[in-house]
Design a protein around this nucleic acid. Structure first.
Lengths: 247, 247
DNA sequence: CGTTCCATTGAGATGTGTCAATTCAAGTGG
DNA sequence: CCACTTGAATTGACACATCTCAATGGAACG
């Protein structure tokens, strides 16, 4: 890809670069630093650890691992999931760059879910102890972190509503719109993107079988709302898609 | 101590009493004060406001109300719900004594759901600003509050899993077990209780229709697992109920 | 003591799941 | 570089759990 080639030739803006700091990160406007003054960002930056990128399939953490940090995605995509008592998987979220995950581990000091990279991904590790200390000194950090957790709650509740009240078509349409707007937030195309997750993951997340997801995509394509070529999605008619999602 | 005893003999500890304090509240062991030292409990107690009990059907707050406080239930039961874009209701939670609600309002400074009393209920109002200030001084309060929010997240994710992976029978069984264990936590009978919510609310919460809920209750009764007399529930066989819930 | 809402039960409709077959994409080793 | 393997995605036919519609019974409350 031309985009990637350009990044590599300059060596500055590689999204997986783990030498980057919060201060010069493209994502700081939508990530944790959001509410902080320039000086305070450096305090936050100082406690953050950046390791080697995760390869596709690597785990960031696993269910029952000791909880020590929350994570901000810098590139790639992470899915979180839990295993039901009878051994099936339930996908609970997809996390894109700028989004923070791992907060479900706080209550029991143990992760309540597992997190796995859907493609090569870089994450910032934010040690929770030190974040807590810092938050007592920086009220705007405390309040922003509470907001993040609260947003996680409202998003989970939206998903509950989506799954329990909406048809297969509406669920898939809603997910496509969600991914589209999260792309827009990162200044990427809201109409053309590559899905990082499989149909299986999509179905699992939305409470549907793979077959149903596949059929819905076919139907939406026949309607001309979007074009699907394996994982490449092109949204042709946002408005109609919103109508179909009843959102 | 003697003074307290005297109080009890005269005005018997009414669960709706709004003169009660965190220090002498029966629920302090499972509620917000949980992690606090005796002295610190009084600080918390000082910022808490207790009003007149809510009557059945009264709203504690409504969707889009300005967010100013979270609430701890002291008696009765509160349901939270949101209205979907097409005007239908989605019940997102039932809150029993000792449980804290309203945290979904933090992210947007506006409540993301409505909260309504299912029966006469008393609540403690905890102004969020002052809780935040207090938390910066009492680390154990900060961490306990974060734990509360984190638990809300994991519970929502459990509900997502329940709705998207389990049959009607499993969902109803799981809810009965949840209510049973929450009763046990408050030293009430885990086998005999009165449901504060209607079948409609149960179905709505679990992503089922009223009719399906009703049929499931009938089936469970026919199996001898529990006895249902309108809202009175008696669990005869916890183990079998757990099996049916696959939990 | 009627009115109203809630709960139960039955019969039939339907959206999604299940099972199965085929095609397609990606990765691997000869 | 090609054959081979493996998993992902699509499509069809059929089954079934739950929904919808409808009727009745029961509880609660003024």
């Amino acid at each position: 890809m031309t985009h990637l080639a350009a990044e590599q030739s300059t060596t500055i803006q590689c999204p997986h670069d783990f030498q980057i700091s919060c201060g010069n990160c493209r994502l700081s406007k939508i990530c944790l630093p959001l509410a902080l003054e320039t000086q305070d960002v450096t305090y936050l930056n100082d406690i953050i650890q950046r390791g080697k990128p995760l390869q596709k399939g690597d785990h960031l953490y696993r269910d029952k691992d000791a909880f020590s940090a929350v994570y901000a995605v810098r590139s790639g995509c992470i899915k979180t999931y839990r295993i039901t008592d009878d051994g099936r998987e339930q996908v609970t979220g997809f996390y894109f760059p700028g989004e923070v995950l791992g907060m479900d581990g706080i209550s029991e000091n143990t992760h309540a879910s597992s997190a796995k990279a859907l493609e090569t991904s870089a994450v910032c590790e934010i040690p929770f102890e030190r974040l807590g200390e810092l938050a007592t000194r920086l009220p705007s950090l405390q309040s922003h972190f509470l907001q993040l957790m609260s947003r996680e709650i409202t998003e989970d509740q939206q998903l509950i509503t989506l799954i329990s009240k909406n048809s297969a078509e509406e669920r898939v349409a809603a997910l496509m719109l969600s991914i589209s707007s999260r792309n827009a937030r990162r200044k990427l195309s809201p109409s053309n993107f590559r899905l990082p997750m499989s149909r299986i993951d999509i179905g699992n997340y939305l409470g549907l079988t793979v077959e149903t997801v596949s059929r819905v995509f076919s139907r939406l394509q026949k309607l001309g709302v979007l074009e699907v070529a394996n994982k490449e999605i092109q949204i042709n008619d946002h408005e109609q898609l919103r109508d179909l999602a009843s959102i």
